Amino acid sequence: MGKIKVLFFIYQMGGGGAARTLLNIINNLDRNKFAPMLVTLNMNGSYEKELKEDVKFIKLETTRLSRSIGDLANIIKTEEIDIVFSTIPRVNTIAILANALSRSKAKNVIREADNLGGSFRENLQLLVFGMVYKRSSQIVSLSEGVKENLVKRYKIKPKDIKVIYNPVDVDNINEQINNGTINPDHQEIFNTTDKIIITAGRLVPQKDQRTLLNAFAKVNKQESSRLVILGEGPLKDELLQQAAQLTIEDRIHFVGFQSNPYIYFSKADLFVLTSIHEGFSHVIAEALASGTPVVSTDCKSGPAEVLDGGVYGALCPVGDADDVALNMLRILQLNKEERADIITKGHMRAGHFDAKQIVKQYEAVFLETLKK
């Protein structure tokens, strides 16, 4: 029996959590059983260079999802694909339609990665996605909270959903910390006796860095600190203006996207996430694996699951800058023994999401799906 051919489809191998998850699954799949292939739109992605050399990588001619169906269908058929794996609603929809058009034996496994919905228009759109999702062979949710949302808003039956947490490549994180270096342009930021607070994520409303800046301004009045922000996005100018209004602009450092964020995490005293909603919050698990204590908003639906209800890090109400600041100060002012205990527990928790274990769960799903 030949290897099972798994085609992974995503619009771009960019710097987001979905691309990082696909990278970790692809690189850690058992090559004795599976032959992974990656297909993206004609867009460059920062994670492309981290793919293992044996991964067949195809870029479609188009940069638009709606125009990718025919080419993707042709690849599924000519490559004799067994499993088509995709993530993100619109990408999932295209993957399902392309597989149907291919008239092949391939099965669709789709992954839902966020807690979407809320407005009437969004909820209606999710119902449409749910109708298409039901044509797949298996749906994977990256957290229990996202599963609940799939049942509630997509109208998917609970029995049709498997929960598999995001894989965190702990070995790779350790290697990048041990062998990586901070960009020379940023080294001066860390040459200080100030406390270093760090966050990572796109500069978009969902991540709510405005609340983080308000909380940081309060913290800095009591504990001399610096805030390092990893990520890019449309809100950068607004956040710079807010920092100026709070008179903390000389304390905030926007360092953009970094292919090795872990070396930055490892040199920080605290990682903070103030998102309004998340699916799993991959970056929290990565911060724990990097040995960095975590403060996060208790948004739906990932952080509480990653931090086990607050056992492995502090949880705060969404948008509550006062509570975020209090928890930041509490952790920053711990003594060495207390801090060491938090770091040890964080490493232990990150191990629960180790890619080696999580990818085995995906492999089991792929094998089960082929039997349907």
Rank of each mutant, 00 (worst) to 15 (best):
I4V: 14
A18S: 00
N32K: 10
P36D: 01
N44L: 15
Y47A: 15
E48S: 14
L51T: 05
E53A: 11
D54A: 09
D54V: 13
D54S: 15
V55T: 14
I69G: 00
N74I: 09
K77D: 03
I83D: 04
F85M: 07
V91A: 12
R103C: 11
K105S: 13
A106I: 12
A106E: 15
V109L: 15
A113Q: 11
L116Q: 15
G117T: 08
S119I: 03
S119M: 04
S119F: 11
E122Q: 15
L124W: 14
Q125C: 07
Q125A: 11
Q125Y: 15
L126K: 02
V128C: 03
G130D: 04
M131E: 09
V132D: 10
Y133K: 11
Q138Y: 04
Q138R: 04
E144H: 06
K147G: 09
N149E: 14
L150A: 04
V151M: 13
Y154M: 04
K157S: 12
P158C: 09
I161A: 06
V163M: 02
I164N: 12
Y165Q: 08
D169C: 10
I173Y: 09
I177E: 13
I182F: 10
I189Y: 05
T192A: 10
P205F: 11
Q206F: 10
K207N: 05
T211V: 03
N214A: 07
K218M: 03
S225C: 02
G233I: 02
P234M: 05
D237H: 11
D237P: 12
Q242N: 05
R251W: 06
H253S: 14
K267C: 02
L270H: 05
T274I: 01
H282Y: 01
L288Q: 01
G291N: 06
P293W: 07
V294H: 06
V295E: 09
D308F: 14
G319N: 02
D320Q: 07
V324W: 04
R339C: 00
R339N: 03
A340G: 06
I343S: 00
K345Q: 05
H347A: 01
G351F: 08
A355F: 00
K360S: 02
E363P: 08
K372Y: 12
